[in-house]
């Protein structure tokens, strides 16, 4: 009896704590939603919104579903196994949008001058053979997870800017790409800084450039959902984006702009550590998490020109159908677009 009543009391307390918070459009009842995520720092906004109760305040009962790569997430949204997800724009996501299954509704991770962004890496062997600038990658093997992945896009943009050609080598998973790069099976790759920096420190690979120099204002990841959610579940979708943005604000303040106290930054890293690098102890995970902090767009704003550029590239490579338009891919009615 005692036990039950105590738990009851705690529940009441927790409920009371949320009461005074206003702002998020409240939904009639707790809506159960599934959010797809990768265990990366770049997905921190969702984790923060969940841990700090922003989802619950918005009346959303969130359950995370974790994935190994970006493209399967798009398929999960299409099949209804996940409601919202944050990931890079991939060929699969665009194809599914063309079939009327998915919609991009907001922006998340962005490259920004002055903030550490994605790095261009080369293997030790290639570095020693003189590949010390991106231009020297001409004719070299460039690691990608799959054709039409963001790595493919980045490689292509770098190649176009430098006037070189790359040999794209699909390896399915980021882990396989890392392994191939370390052992010198491939020559170059680009990846978020929290993965790039520790690799470079080990001496097995070398950083030779920044992606931001080639793709300024690159909208790396976007928030997306099923076309049905975007069209018919406005309240729920708005609630999700609002809570997600609050999480993003906390994250940016603590780790990107560093405007908060050191304690708050510490608390933020601890929160993220619950999801990211869980297999490492906190002290070892902390630098990786701090290094991986890239800006998550305020208010989930979406950089339309970057999305448009990515879409055009996918079309020009013949990876997606020519017939697909921005309207099919993006529902710009939720967030501010630029």
């Amino acid at each position: 009896m005692n036990q039950v009543s105590r738990r009851h009391a705690m529940g009441l307390l927790a409920g009371a704590a949320t009461l005074p918070v206003l702002g998020a459009p409240a939904l009639a009842a707790n809506s159960k939603i599934t959010v797809g995520a990768l265990a990366f720092t770049s997905h921190a906004a969702s984790f923060v919104a969940f841990e700090r109760g922003y989802f619950a305040e918005a009346g959303l009962d969130v359950e995370f579903k974790f994935f190994q790569a970006a493209q399967p997430m798009a398929v999960a949204i299409a099949s209804g196994d996940a409601d919202y997800a944050v990931t890079a724009i991939s060929g699969g996501l665009i194809s599914l949008a063309e079939k009327g299954a998915t919609k991009v509704i907001g922006g998340a991770l962005s490259e920004e001058k002055g903030i550490d962004g994605q790095k261009i890496l080369v293997s030790d062997a290639a570095f020693k053979a003189g590949v010390t600038t991106p231009k020297a990658l001409d004719g070299k093997a460039w690691g990608v997870t799959q054709a039409g992945s963001s790595f493919h896009y980045m490689g292509a943009k770098i190649a176009a800017a430098e006037g070189i050609s790359l040999k794209y080598t699909p390896l399915q998973k980021t882990g396989a790409v890392i392994g191939a790069l370390k052992s010198g099976q491939i020559d170059g790759w680009s990846i978020v800084p929290h993965i790039a920096k520790p690799l470079a420190k080990s001496g097995a690979v070398h950083i030779i450039g920044d992606v931001a120099d080639y793709i300024p204002n690159y909208q790396v990841t976007t928030v997306f959902t099923s076309a049905a959610n975007a069209a018919n579940e406005r309240a729920k979708t708005q609630a999700f984006l609002a809570a997600f943005s609050k999480g993003a604000d906390d994250f940016n303040a603590a780790l990107v702009d560093k405007t908060t106290s050191a304690d708050e930054a510490e608390a933020m890293v601890k929160l993220i550590h619950k999801y990211v690098y869980t297999d490492r102890e906190y002290e070892k995970a902390k630098p990786s998490i701090v290094n991986g902090a890239m800006r998550i767009n305020k208010g989930a704003a979406l950089n339309m020109s970057s999305v448009n550029d990515q879409l055009s590239w996918f079309k020009s490579e013949g990876l997606v159908k020519d017939s697909i338009s921005m309207d099919m891919l993006v529902d710009g009615s939720y967030v501010s677009t630029t």
């Binding site: 398929v75 060929g91 194809s95 599914l96 799959q146 992945s149 040999k167 699909p170 997606v320």
Partner: peptide
């Protein structure tokens, strides 16, 4: 880069 298997995998990842 080329091969029936690579072609199928690429189509799968592009959801084509």
């Amino acid at each position: 880069q080329y091969g029936i298997g690579a072609y199928i995998l690429e189509a799968g990842s592009l959801y084509d």
